[in-house]
Design a binder for these strands. Structure first.
Lengths: 334, 334
DNA sequence: TGTTAAACTGAAAGTGCTTTCAGTTCTTCT
DNA sequence: AGAAGAACTGAAAGCACTTTCAGTTTAACA
């Protein structure tokens, strides 16, 4: 063994008979180099067992091309669909996507305090999680561009959803179809700290009924844990009431599915005997012909990435808040 | 207020009224700097809350364990469910999860050549993508522990699915229920390079029929692009045949959904007039009561992570191949 | 007071890599 | 065959620091 000098791209370039530029390109944007050249370089790299020095790279690159997403542990399909929008947009941009899933507030806390410091993120997207003022301060102080989805904050970029309006829309639609006995089925997965989207949807629901001067029996507002079984159980209770509702507004599509199944099992015909409207417009909604409020989940992810990138480019830009329009998707369950 | 740029030693030097050299020395060999100067520099550093960039990054990079997942651009729900298994398992392990989505073979090629070098990865999971020998060689040469899901390779750890067997199981089940006119509906999303899982499922299907001495009309094997519309269209063609099948084996749950919808639209009662069996056992399958072959998608992700971690711990261990058992889930569509 | 060595300091030359920009080659279309 | 473009490639200019080396100061001593 001779003097073990670490090979650099210069060595690789010389050996491969190309310029260092080409070697670098081969490493970073391989699709922009001819496959023959690529092969040559690869051979040289392997022969020298060359490893690019991370530190030098970091220096030369003004940004690291990594963006992080903090998401609740993704069992909920809506998170995934948002994430898909993020991934789709990012994949064309040559950014690395790092996923941090959190299952508790503590966990989130932890990420929020360490992530800005380690400094190897160009930007951060926080999905369906609420952050408090002090955490926001830290993010801003450390200059980590951030965008929030679903739980807005005045000092940061946000993609907001007008949940109350959505609840109002759904309810008005049901009202317009002549329903007067309308029930609400939401979930109980309440984050203790901030306003839960489902609560806002309920608020919109209440407002619509109030404006239509329809009194709402207490028994018509039900919350069930976010699971199929529980939802089905509660839906059945609703349908077994002496005077059951003629329509149910489920706060999420996922729960609408539970309602639909309960209805089927109890022999209610949809939409003739029971109308069901959901909220989200998950992929599944289309398969099961669920009428729902679309909140353009994929789009929200896309938008978040765009906000983030533009913030990364011009860090001094004031934060933007974008509210995605909600759309009523008429299908077969109302 | 906006603190845009991170400070560099130039900023510190200017502020302290010294040269960058001095700042650097102050940082690295403080004892070689006059204590007054030292004080000045220190003040400037604090004022700007300066952190040497590259160093911070290098440090951060060293201590964080990262594992990467290369996945086809995830529109298919099955990828997502596998990914979920990966994320779930990793979240307890204090690893960073980096996602690379690819949309073409070139793209994959690119990642495979650069990731082992610049990726800074401790391990790699390749999801539903086939890699050729030379790429495998490189992964091994560079000592990047890797596990493959769905497309196996002898030299690497793999989580395999016995697709042919699954096709056989599904078909036998249908046969057992008395069906004799059984059609197959697969997708056409064939990767040019290797054996497509759907082809294997078809193979199992054919074998089961052959063993039962049932002749299979050519019209009963259909391929549709992986989309709801297309699938529905093809399913309808099948059902509009003069002698339509009494059962359809859909190569994926996603397509089974299309079949179900087509059946509903054409007024076929399921399972009385048409039995449908899928493959995958997506979450949705349960909601729609689809009878299907479960390939334990979440579990495959979990397993992959475990194989990977154990390989990271003992790099010299020979590659393992694990075949997850398939399970027939009886629900309401057969 | 003049020397001289010790203690500092800053300009400039690396460090290993990325990226811009202009030039070269290869296609394709007319 | 020629023109217009697309696809590649390399020279050179960074990036954020570290290090060398040639000065300046300062201190100390005769």
């Amino acid at each position: 063994m001779s003097i073990a000098k670490k090979p650099t791209i210069y060595d690789v370039a010389r050996r491969a008979g190309v310029s260092i530029t080409t070697v670098s390109r081969m490493l970073n944007t391989p699709d922009k180099v001819n496959s023959e050249t690529r092969e040559k370089v690869l051979v040289a790299i392997d022969a020298l067992s060359f490893v690019p020095k991370a530190e030098a790279r970091a220096r030369a690159m003004q940004h690291i091309e990594r963006i992080g997403v903090i998401s609740p542990f993704f069992t909920a399909p809506s998170f995934i669909q948002r994430l898909r929008g993020v991934a789709a947009t990012l994949s064309t941009k040559n950014y690395e996507l790092v996923i941090y899933t959190v299952d508790s507030n503590d966990h989130l806390q932890g990420y929020l305090s360490s992530l800005p410091l380690t400094g190897n993120l160009d930007g951060l997207i926080i999905l369906s999680l609420s952050v408090d003022d002090s955490q926001v301060r830290r993010l801003i102080d450390h200059g980590l561009p951030t965008v929030l989805i679903e739980y807005p904050h005045p000092k940061l970029n946000c993609v907001e959803i007008d949940d109350a309006e959505g609840g109002y829309m759904a309810t008005s639609y049901l009202l317009g179809k002549g329903h007067r006995r309308i029930a609400f089925l939401g979930d109980t997965d309440l984050p203790e700290y901030s306003i839960h989207p489902v609560s806002l949807r309920l608020r919109g629901f209440r407002r619509a009924l109030k404006e239509a001067r329809i009194k709402l029996p207490d028994t018509f507002v039900r919350l069930a844990p976010y699971s199929q079984d529980q939802t089905r159980k509660v839906a059945k209770e609703l349908l077994n009431l002496p005077e059951p509702p003629t329509a149910i507004f489920a706060a999420t599509d996922f729960q609408a599915l539970g309602v639909l199944k309960a209805a089927r099992q109890l022999g209610f015909r949809v939409p003739e005997q029971l109308a069901v409207i959901g909220f989200d417009d998950l992929d599944i909604a289309e398969y099961v012909d669920l009428t729902t409020i679309s909140q353009h989940l994929d789009e929200s992810g896309r938008l978040a990435v765009e906000l983030l990138l533009s913030q990364i480019e011009s860090p001094s830009r004031p934060p933007r808040h974008v509210k995605l329009p909600l759309t009523l998707i008429e299908r077969q369950t109302v």
